[in-house]
Computed example of a mutant assay.
Amino acid sequence: MDYKTLKIEHRGASAWIWMSRPEVHNAFDETLIAELTAAFTTLDADPAVRAIVLAGEGKSFSAGADLNWMQRQGAAALEDNLTDARKLAGLFRAISMCSTPTIARVHGAALGGGMGLASASDICVASTKAQFATSEVRLGIIPAAIGPYVVRAIGERQAYRYFQTAERISAEQARHIGLAHEVAEPQELDARVQQVVDALLLGGPLAQAAATDLIRAVAHRPVDDEVAEDTAQRIATLRATPEAREGLAAFLGKRAPAWTQGHA
């Protein structure tokens, strides 16, 4: 697929999606939203892709919504406005529901929807120069589409502050509140992302997909009989798969499992 706002780079078993609107700090418009959704959906369906990295060209990761696009939507009929909002919500859901591990490589500004991209990804690795914000209230709107993912990343208590103040969040503070998993100097950012990719390639792909599905199933639920039974069903089912048998055989045989061939 030919993209107008993205560049796709394959690095071994990882695919890097580069947002390529540096002149507007990779701000969202209808084209970028549609192309990001398509790119994540397509790459997630490719068994040769074991990790997806999202990055931005230029000075910023993403400055959020393109203001010209926002103005167009604000002036549109309600149904058209709602259709566009649903597409934006669909983008974050597509990223969040990927079976393939996703990593946000964040440098510079990650504002509004840019912070949403970082939150919807499984893992966030940030430059020390990165800055985050849920800046929507300063424009008279709210971080609605990104809200579920940001709250999941930083917690309800922190969201009460940052959703209302729209303060800038430094990379170190982002790590402190749970948004960023790792912080690296700018010149070391790609190497640190690659280290995370390398770690991901050591895991079984079906197991990783099952692990993220497990998180969604048990998060914020009491450990009652239903949850306990569900976890038992999951491990019993997974243990019987060829991937699990290969993993156990490889461990006992003191060799690398088949899925790491060419990556280890």
Rank of each mutant, 00 (worst) to 15 (best):
residue 195 Q to S: 15
residue 181 H to A: 13
residue 202 L to H: 11
residue 185 E to M: 14
residue 216 R to L: 13
residue 217 A to V: 00
residue 200 L to I: 11
residue 208 Q to K: 08
residue 219 A to H: 10
residue 206 L to W: 06
residue 179 L to Q: 00
residue 184 A to K: 04
residue 219 A to V: 08
residue 179 L to H: 00
residue 193 V to E: 00
residue 196 V to W: 09
residue 208 Q to P: 05
residue 201 L to D: 06
residue 182 E to W: 14
residue 203 G to F: 15
residue 218 V to I: 14
residue 221 R to C: 06
residue 194 Q to R: 15
residue 192 R to Q: 12
residue 179 L to Y: 02
residue 197 V to P: 00
residue 206 L to T: 13
residue 208 Q to M: 14
residue 212 T to D: 03
residue 185 E to V: 09
residue 206 L to Q: 15
residue 203 G to M: 15
residue 208 Q to T: 12
residue 215 I to R: 13
residue 182 E to K: 14
residue 204 G to P: 12
residue 195 Q to P: 08
residue 217 A to N: 04
residue 210 A to C: 11
residue 189 L to P: 00
residue 203 G to V: 08
residue 190 D to L: 09
residue 191 A to H: 10
residue 204 G to R: 02
residue 186 P to N: 10
residue 189 L to S: 07
residue 195 Q to G: 15
residue 190 D to F: 05
residue 190 D to M: 10
residue 208 Q to W: 07
residue 205 P to K: 06
residue 204 G to D: 02
residue 190 D to W: 11
residue 221 R to M: 06
residue 218 V to T: 05
residue 185 E to L: 11
residue 199 A to K: 15
residue 198 D to Q: 12
residue 192 R to P: 05
residue 206 L to I: 01
residue 222 P to R: 10
residue 203 G to R: 13
residue 216 R to S: 14
residue 211 A to F: 06
residue 196 V to T: 11
residue 195 Q to K: 15
residue 218 V to P: 07
residue 209 A to M: 02
residue 205 P to Y: 04
residue 217 A to H: 09
residue 198 D to P: 07
residue 207 A to R: 14
residue 215 I to C: 02
residue 204 G to N: 07
residue 218 V to Y: 02
residue 203 G to N: 15
residue 185 E to P: 11
residue 207 A to Q: 14
residue 193 V to Y: 08
residue 183 V to D: 00
residue 188 E to K: 15
residue 208 Q to I: 12
residue 190 D to E: 14
residue 214 L to D: 03
residue 181 H to T: 08
residue 213 D to W: 07
residue 216 R to Y: 13
residue 196 V to G: 07
residue 199 A to P: 10
residue 215 I to F: 09
residue 179 L to K: 00
residue 198 D to I: 12
residue 206 L to P: 07
residue 223 V to I: 11
residue 211 A to R: 10
residue 193 V to M: 07
residue 210 A to K: 13
residue 197 V to W: 04
residue 180 A to K: 04
residue 209 A to F: 06
residue 217 A to K: 06
residue 187 Q to T: 12
residue 183 V to M: 00
residue 197 V to N: 03
